[in-house]
Simulated assay, not measured.
Amino acid sequence: MSSTTHDFYLGRGADADWLGSVRLASWDGRWLDEFTRARSAGGFITLVALFLRTAEIHEAGEVTLGNHVWPWPWPTSHGTDYVHAFDTGTVWTARRGDRWSLRADEYIPPGPDETPLVFPAMREYCGYTGIDAADTTARRYGPLLGDTYRHDLPQLGLRILTDLTGPPVPGAPSALTGLRAQLPPHLRYAVTADETAVELGFEVFGYRDGDPAAETAAQALSMLPALYGWTDPLGGPPRFGVRVLLADDGRHTTHPVLGDPRARAVLTAF
Rank of each mutant, 00 (worst) to 15 (best):
W74C: 06
A16W: 00
W100T: 04
T192R: 14
W230Q: 05
G235E: 09
G43T: 06
A121M: 08
S26H: 12
A213Y: 03
G111P: 05
V257M: 11
A263L: 07
T177I: 14
W100Y: 06
F35E: 08
D33G: 11
D132E: 14
R37C: 07
Y207I: 03
V91S: 05
R264E: 05
D260P: 02
V198N: 15
F270G: 11
G66I: 07
A269I: 09
A134L: 12
D105V: 01
A41H: 02
L183N: 03
R188H: 04
D132S: 13
L24M: 13
R140T: 14
A172S: 15
Q182F: 06
Y141E: 08
G206Q: 04
Y107N: 04
P256C: 11
L183S: 06
F86G: 05
P185I: 05
P73A: 12
T46Q: 13
R180D: 07
G43L: 00
T231Q: 14
A218R: 15
G97F: 01
L176M: 13
P233T: 09
R12K: 09
H186Y: 13
R150I: 11
R139P: 00
D260C: 10
H58W: 04
R188T: 06
T93S: 13
G42L: 03
L267Q: 12
S222T: 14
G250Y: 07
G79L: 02
T88I: 01
P233A: 08
R123Y: 06
D132F: 07
W18I: 07
T36Q: 11
H6W: 03
E203C: 10
T129H: 12
I131N: 08
T196H: 13
T115A: 12
L267A: 11
P168D: 13
Y125K: 08
L10G: 06
L227T: 05
R239H: 09
L179T: 11
V48D: 02
G166D: 10
T231N: 09
Y82G: 00
L50Q: 15
G130T: 07
V244C: 07
T231C: 07
W70C: 02
G43A: 11
R239C: 10
D260A: 13
R159V: 05
R123D: 08
R96E: 07
